[in-house]
Design a protein around this nucleic acid. Structure first.
Lengths: 350, 350
DNA sequence: TTGTAGGCGTTATCAC
DNA sequence: GTGATAACGCCTACAA
């Protein structure tokens, strides 16, 4: 037993009474081997339960047959869905998947570089490391796909895949305006993710286009339920205290924030949608179960992952073409939280 | 440039005018090196942006510094949470994480074996591959931690981490009986996961202990919302048609099934909790937002992952002690879907 | 058809 | 303090 992983090719060769070259040939099917030697080799492989060392193989072949993916974190369904799509396609192509979440750590750079030395290519999502790292890896010739993150100024071909946040936000605004709401607020931190920044931009643009005055600033908060609850509560109380006009619409950067806002409103006796419309983004499961159900914008999370995997595969396979820039469409999902509609069916299951 | 990943140690050595041994020594800090040579080496490393090849390193060191984890799939919050806990701890220990989802594929065995040759140890969750594969890996000496999956009869020390499904189910039943419900049904597929099997067992045991007749069989269905909807609908319609006594309680194997069941009941005009109590398992986010909010059993998903990572780390570090068998406690979360309680606060945020 | 031998990029053990 | 050099496990020309 040569290593923890099991027997080595030498032991198989010895047992079969052949050279390691022959064993390799049988296993790889690269060169014809006499039927009877082949049998003997296979028998030895079987008896020893031999599995070639990935390390040896990769070192010799000069490739890892593995993909990396870097997320900021894994909370909420978004990244999990992306990962599903990614892993599924990568696995189907025979590639392993290494995952790294940076959690905004300072060590992120080092971790990503380490990851880079274990894979043939990788996906970098959103705010995980700064463009310097991306440029460095790209310069090294490592195939890179950026997910929901703008392409940096870098020489190498870096592909980008994202969803159309701006169009989604504009469609959302257009719908909200049909409810005759005018005083908008936006909950979320545009600096926390390029996606959120685009949603904010889309909101502002949509309102301007309709001649409605957009909010001066977003209400900055983290992208989770708790932060949404706190931010909405503060907003609703402050406006009340200041005697200023209360917001009529809360456009939230994601569903978690929106659901937190719904709880805050409920607690303060603000009726939804009568007094206040609330919208989210992503269409997570809880959005359908909230009462009223949450109006939101759905994005093809899983396809983001699968596309990234496919694109990466092409690059790893040698594609040297111009960088692709895929923008996937979003879909407005109108439910009860933004106002009353005809044939409201808040429990839609699709 | 020796490879896609960048320069090799030879190029650094040449540039610094030293041997590769010296470069290695400087980088690893293993043996003292003269200050000025050290400087020269570091300068060369810097200029060439040298990062040692993981492949070469691992081959020489005989270790990957990487952990694997095998899931059946990634849908729903359960596995994502486990993964979070796992990745976080593994990363903190400087280890990379390879993830594999088997999707019940026939190729699972081969994929797991491939994974095994890329890591120093791995976690195998639930129903992913059969015990033969586990035994094989264990026999090879690969450190293994089983997650929510019973230990097989195997020579090597295999650690197990799971939650106390039986106790959770018994506590749940005990509570449900206080509502004077007697006719129970169980929705879920015990053969789909050991967890579910234990929940079913706990239900049966809990009812027997109270002198209540348990259902003869579980209502088998997949562990998702759609399956729960379909199964509940069928159940409620059939009972109605047959004129038999309708079930008073639907104990579901997880929250997704339960929420699907709630939709089915709603659709059929069956009032919850008045006519029918419904309970889930996991306490996913949507469980809190459903109306009535879902009574469920919470399990420490994230800690399952972090514990597994820690245990694996100990084994990889050389622990040869007896197998651990950790059983984490569950927590009953009583909400509105199982009946009316004093001081009902269905929107609890904790 | 099969074997020999060099190379992949490190680490670590010897000598010097 | 530093430099050869042998592993590590595999693949693959090149020979035979």
């Amino acid at each position: 037993m040569g290593r923890a992983g099991g027997p080595t090719i030498y032991q198989v060769a010895e047992r079969a009474g052949v050279s390691i070259a022959t064993v390799s040939r049988v296993l790889r099917g690269t060169t014809p081997v006499a039927a009877h030697t082949r049998e003997r080799v296979l028998a030895a492989v079987e008896e020893l339960r031999f599995t070639p060392s990935r390390l040896g193989r990769s070192l010799a072949e000069g490739r890892h047959v593995a993909n990396g993916i870097v997320f900021p974190d894994l909370s909420g369904p978004y990244f999990a869905e992306v990962l599903m799509g990614y892993e599924e396609v990568a696995a189907a192509m025979g590639r392993s998947v290494l995952i790294l979440t940076t959690h905004g750590r300072a060590a992120a750079r080092a971790q990503v570089l380490d990851l880079a030395s274990r894979v043939d290519g990788m996906v970098v999502a959103v705010r995980t490391v700064d463009d310097g790292v991306v440029a460095e890896l790209s310069a090294r010739g490592l195939p890179l796909v950026l997910l929901a993150r703008p392409a940096p100024q870098t020489p190498g071909p870096v592909d980008v895949i994202r969803t159309d946040n701006r169009a989604g936000a504009e469609a959302l605004v257009a719908h909200l305006l049909t409810h005759d709401r005018r005083r908008f607020a936006f909950l979320g931190g545009p600096e926390r993710s390029p996606d959120v920044a685009e949603r904010w931009d889309g909101l502002v643009a949509g309102l301007r286009a309709a001649g409605v005055r957009p909010p001066a600033e977003p209400v900055r908060c983290a992208l989770d339920e708790r932060a949404g609850y706190a931010a909405a509560r503060r907003l609703l109380l402050d406006r009340g205290a200041a005697g200023g006009p209360a917001p009529e619409v809360l456009v939230c950067a994601n569903d978690e924030i929106a659901l937190g806002a719904v709880l805050a409103a409920e607690e303060l006796g603000v009726a939804i949608p009568a007094d206040l419309a609330v919208t989210g983004w992503d269409d997570i499961m809880a959005a359908r179960y909230a009462r009223p159900a949450l109006t939101t914008v759905r994005q093809p999370m899983r396809e983001l992952g699968s596309r990234a995997a496919r694109r990466l595969h092409e690059r790893v396979a040698g594609d040297r073409g111009d960088p692709h820039h895929d923008v996937l469409p979003t879909e407005l999902v109108v439910r009860g939280s933004c106002g009353v509609h005809q044939a409201d069916s808040p429990t839609d299951r699709e």
